[in-house]
Design a protein around this nucleic acid. Structure first.
Lengths: 226, 226
DNA sequence: GCAACCCCTGAACATAATCTGAATATTAGG
DNA sequence: CCTAATATTCAGATTATGTTCAGGGGTTGC
């Protein structure tokens, strides 16, 4: 999952992106409205954390522009305490949730997880695919109840596939959502990660669709394959 | 489905054609208005992605020429941000949709699927022909609810026939829409693929019309065959 | 500050799926 | 029956995917 943070206070921005990275997200940062708007327009984020008081273009305008352009990623806005009117116009502009500063990291992370899972049409933080259990909250996964140790990138890959289970996901899409901005994929990292994941969670849980990509399935619940 | 991309920026052009190929389309590329116009005039594309700012002949003129010549393929135009007047004249010239740069691959792909299916007179990404279900988004097909594994070329063939179901489709037409430019068909690949498809989805779903081509039908709902 | 470790990356190499073209068999139509 | 059209089969050729591994950057524990 890849997240954009638009925040001008350098301290807060660093804290936020660190906390998010620790939770296993790929994070890009913008420190003003213009850059933030451009990045949101250009890159396929899974969620955005948007401060409202920003240099150059304010947060509400950025959000409005995105929505006018048809961008649908979920947006969590940060407001100063007591700025009730801002919250209202934030929701009007298409925000999905808000958080008043100051806040605990824990709360931010919980809300991010919530908007991510809502966007993907799930109702809880964990996803079961047959005997495979993916816990996005604890960033852990289990097969038949046994905990599986995954590295951070392995978990990102699994988590993204779990959110979109059953669908074929192209290598390009995986790269875009697992890595942050400056990454030029000209190597076979995705294949390597898929290989490692398969060894850990079971080869047949990730189906490869030649020429298109990969798909996460429940191997015990395939109607019948030819 | 075969798509023409007319775009002069080499980076964007490569990205586009890669993303489209990933989605299972056959793709040709032109990097200026003149070549683009010629290719669109000569080859039977199912859709065109057309940048407006092009060397030699600009995009709007290319589109106007095509429409004046009676070309009906759907055209998705790419415009720079804020060039609202361009969008308007694009629609006037006969565009089917537009996308402002920059954009996400996923959005482009969604719009391509949308104009393709509109052009074929469908309203969703999936098509049912009796017990056969073709899902163009997931690139999958089912018979009686059972998933059928198809290779990428097999799926292209099926998808094209499903889009034009009930009509007889000649071998030449199939070759032209399933392969991109540089493919010299002097062999019997189409027969081979039809054979393989038949084995997978059921022999009687593809009818042979001697001397003309093939037709995709619902074997359980044939008005009356002689 | 150092050593030990873990993980990521990119490349080289190995394997497997699928495509192609041709040869051969079968069928429909006269 | 004869012929042309279509089907089937199959063996390379070709590409996509898998696997392995070494080097390096970063982190942890001492």
């Amino acid at each position: 999952m890849r997240i954009l943070v638009v925040e001008d206070d350098p301290d807060l921005s660093r804290q936020l992106s660190e906390a998010l990275k620790d939770s296993g997200y790929a994070v890009d940062v913008a420190d003003n409205g213009e850059d933030g708007h451009f990045m949101g327009d250009t890159e396929p984020y899974d969620a955005v954390v948007l401060d409202l008081g920003l240099p150059i273009i304010d947060g509400i305008s950025v959000l409005q522009k995105w929505r006018a352009d048809g961008k649908t990623f979920p947006v969590l806005i940060l407001t100063a305490r007591d700025q009730w009117s801002e919250k209202v116009s934030g929701f009007d502009a298409g925000a999905d949730d808000y958080l008043t500063k100051p806040f605990h990291h824990e709360e931010l992370l919980a809300r991010i997880r919530a908007i991510l899972r809502r966007a993907a049409g799930h109702t809880t933080d964990s996803i079961d695919i047959g005997a495979l259990h993916v816990d996005n909250r604890a960033a852990r996964c289990f097969v038949d109840g046994m905990p599986i140790k995954l590295t951070s990138h392995e978990f990102r890959l699994l988590s993204y596939m779990a959110m979109h289970r059953g669908r074929v996901i192209s290598r390009t899409e995986l790269v875009e959502h697992i890595y942050d901005q400056d990454f030029d994929r000209d190597s076979n990292t995705i294949e390597v990660f898929v290989g490692r994941l398969r060894r850990k969670i079971g080869t047949d849980r990730i189906e490869t669709v030649r020429g298109l990509g990969y798909r996460l399935i429940d191997p015990d619940n395939v109607p019948n394959k030819k």
